[in-house]
Design a protein around this nucleic acid. Structure first.
Length: 650
RNA sequence: GCUGCAGUAGCUCAGUGGUAGAGCGCGUCCUUGGUAAGGACGAGGUCGGGAGUUCAAUCCUCCCCUGCAGCACCA
């Protein structure tokens, strides 16, 4: 076909070299240095990641990767492992149908269609077979096939999922077929040169779980096998250790150990708070109440059970009924049952408060806050400890304002949120700015205006944000705030949404300077999101070791000998008077036992009191996580812990 | 909601077609011990709920509930 024309490749250091068109990255690497040729694994050409064998036909920028490039190396290793696993599965069970197997965080998965479930023993067998395939150092080859050939091939093999995939690939696009030894799979690549390049001791099949074909709940349920893979054994071990650490932080486990809360069958998704857990809640609520008061919010309280008439007006009955707890009541003398619903959100009730009496523009912005208890019928499979529940309380507020107040309200909200997160131990958070979705209400003009205001406000707050196009609510754009916890997980907690819709539906209006009635904007906003979930996040973030001011039991004063008991009680009394949550431990146990028990109970400070302390009116201080002890005077202890018990302030 | 797995003492878990065990915890007693488990004795279970098979079910079968891992959902 084409005669040998020259192309020019630009390297990361800016150097250019000329090659014959159709040159492969492997050949390019060889032309630079034999050592590089040997170590090369793939190449990035014009920003896209390719195999070494892929021909380069035009001028391009190129970077040759070796195993030293973590991002590319891990992608290739994990991607090849997906194929190797699928091959191993089909070698063991030829009747199993293959589907897709992408790379994901820390590893990969592959979805299979098989009548019998995979067992843990099966995973072991698959893993063993995978190691054989790796050790065989089978070459990885690729070919471009035309559609008809690929369809015929999979038709013959009886692979309906692959056929569907091919039919979903746009006409005219190349179909690439990859061989790992004699086994082949439709794949866009890239891959390593041979299976032996995959480290045989740095992967592990972890578990199997159901997953819908193409993520669609109406399609067949497949079996997804998950694997973890790294460049070497040490990295794998480190990751497994990290997973163990994360499991130790599980708030469900810590919640039991620290006696914070429980859940039981009779009330799925509803939390029974124990004294220790409820103490955390109240500390957090009091703190938030203080922050909201200074920020100019008014706290209100609205009903739990509200007639369906209001939900019909607000649109919830139509759009959200599936998720609502319905309460039917036989009213005296009534022909029909009265239908109520437990409120799933607070906004309609807040509009009712706004609507009482005539509001003037002088009342705006009106910030109505409620620690609003809501109930949502979440699907059974989605509940998870405190993180996803059916009964929860939001730190909710709705700001009724004019259009030109949106910007400044947003800005001060972001400042408040950042300060609260910082106080609660989360330094980092990210902002997602979600813009107009395809399906929406309101004019493009309004959207332009409101989006512009929101964006300007985020910019003014001086915090980085990402635009998430089309992800806004149907009624308006929003900001979502995701904080990062101590082990790098992200949690979406805060939100700020502009809503010109609900005030219209529920008839909110105010009298403006012109004497006419106008529609206010309504801003939905939350900082913590839900108390339940946020407390779960706090527990996991701190691995149960809450900072002093949040800890349910802050100080335990433990006697070493019972002759010290009167002084112990005196200390506890004085600490409580100073605002410290203190408890006495005068049980007939040795001090070793008490130290162990309260350390496991995550009490920040233990004061041990023996006769020495009684004699010079001092305390022996032992702080959580520190085996050293320190002696200080009774008065010094009172001053220190009384101060430490105060909530943080700027 | 879907797929798979699970539910035995307060907790963690073992176990068996003939109505059950350990450790921790709990109670009582002894012990007053100086910074991560002192000792002895004791109490405690309708083996998640219902139905079926069986002479007999905690164990086998079916249904339900709840939980766990994912998937889907999260206006």
């Amino acid at each position: 076909m084409s005669h040998a024309s020259q192309i020019s490749l630009t390297f990361p250091d800016g150097a250019r070299r000329d090659y014959t068109a159709g040159v492969t990255a492997a050949e390019v690497a060889a032309s630079i240095a034999p050592g590089l040729a040997k170590r090369a694994i793939s190449a990035t050409v014009n920003g896209a990641h390719y195999d070494l064998q892929w021909p380069i036909t035009a001028d391009a920028s190129i970077a040759i990767h070796t195993m030293a490039d973590d991002t590319q190396a891990l992608e290739l290793i994990r991607h090849d492992l997906a194929h190797i696993m699928a091959r191993a599965v089909q070698e063991i069970w030829p009747e199993v149908k293959v589907t897709i197997g992408p790379v994901r965080d820390q590893g990969w998965f592959y979805d299979f269609d098989r009548a019998e479930p995979f067992t843990p023993e099966d995973l072991g067998a698959i893993e063993a077979r995978m190691k054989q395939i790796i050790n065989a150092r089978d070459p990885v080859r690729t070919e471009v096939w035309d559609r008809a050939r690929a369809l015929a091939y999979y038709e013959e093999r009886g692979e309906p999922f692959k056929i569907e995939l091919i039919n979903r690939i746009p006409e005219g696009e190349d179909l690439r077929m990859y061989w790992h030894g004699a086994w082949q799979d439709l794949c866009r690549g890239p891959h390593l040169q041979h299976t032996g390049q995959v480290p045989a001791d740095a992967f592990k099949l972890t578990h199997v779980a159901g997953a819908y074909w193409l993520g669609d709940a109406t399609r067949p349920m497949l079996q997804r096998i998950y694997g973890l893979a790294f460049k070497n054994r040490e990295d794998l071990k480190a990751h497994l250790t990290m997973l163990e650490e994360a499991a130790k932080r599980d708030h469900r486990k810590l919640g039991r150990e620290m006696d914070l809360f429980h859940l039981q069958d009779e009330a799925p998704g509803m939390v029974f708070w124990h004294p220790n857990g409820w103490q955390i809640w109240r500390t957090l609520e009091d703190y938030m109440r203080g922050r909201l008061r200074t920020a100019g919010y008014k706290e209100i309280r609205t009903p739990q059970v509200v007639d369906r008439i209001l939900w019909e007006k607000s649109g919830h009955w139509e759009a959200y009924r599936e998720n609502m707890f319905i309460v039917e009541v036989d009213e005296e003398g009534a022909k029909e049952k009265r239908i109520n619903a437990l409120k799933p959100m607070n906004c309609p009730c807040h509009v009712q408060v706004f609507n009482q009496g005539l509001k003037s523009y002088r009342d705006l912005p009106l910030r109505l806050a409620e620690f609003g208890s809501c109930h949502r019928y979440e699907s059974s499979g989605s509940m998870h400890g405190l993180m996803r529940v059916r009964g929860f309380t939001q730190d909710d507020a709705h700001i009724f304002c004019t259009e030109d107040q949106i910007g400044s309200e947003c800005e001060s909200f972001i400042r408040l949120l950042a300060s609260v997160y910082k106080h609660l131990g989360f330094d980092g958070f990210e902002i997602k700015f979600s813009t107009r979705p395809d399906v929406r209400i309101g004019s493009d003009e309004t959207w332009d205006k409101v989006e512009g205001m929101l964006e300007a406000a985020v910019k003014a707050a001086g915090v980085p944000y990402e635009v998430d196009p089309g992800e806004g609510a149907f009624y308006g754009p929003k900001l979502d705030f995701k904080l990062t916890d101590a082990i790098g997980r992200k949690w979406q907690c805060g939100t700020f949404q502009v809503d010109p819709n609900l005030p219209t539906r529920l008839g909110a209006e105010y009298v403006a300077e012109d004497g006419a009635k106008h529609r206010p904007y309504m801003l939905h906003r939350a900082i913590l999101g839900s108390f339940e979930r946020f407390i779960g996040i706090l527990i996991e973030n701190y691995a149960g070791k809450l900072p002093f001011w949040l800890a349910p039991r802050q100080v335990v004063v433990a006697s070493i000998v019972s002759d010290a008991d009167p002084f112990v009680h005196e200390i506890v009394g004085a600490l409580r008077k100073a605002g410290v949550r203190a408890e006495a431990d005068v049980r007939n146990e040795k001090i070793n036992y008490k130290v162990r028990e309260h350390s496991l109970g995550k009490v920040p400070v233990l004061l041990a009191i023996g006769m020495k302390e009684v004699e010079d009116r001092s305390v022996s201080v032992r702080r959580l996580g520190d085996a050293r002890t320190e002696t200080m005077s009774f008065d010094a202890a009172l001053a220190e812990f009384g101060f430490a018990a105060l909530p943080p302030s700027d």
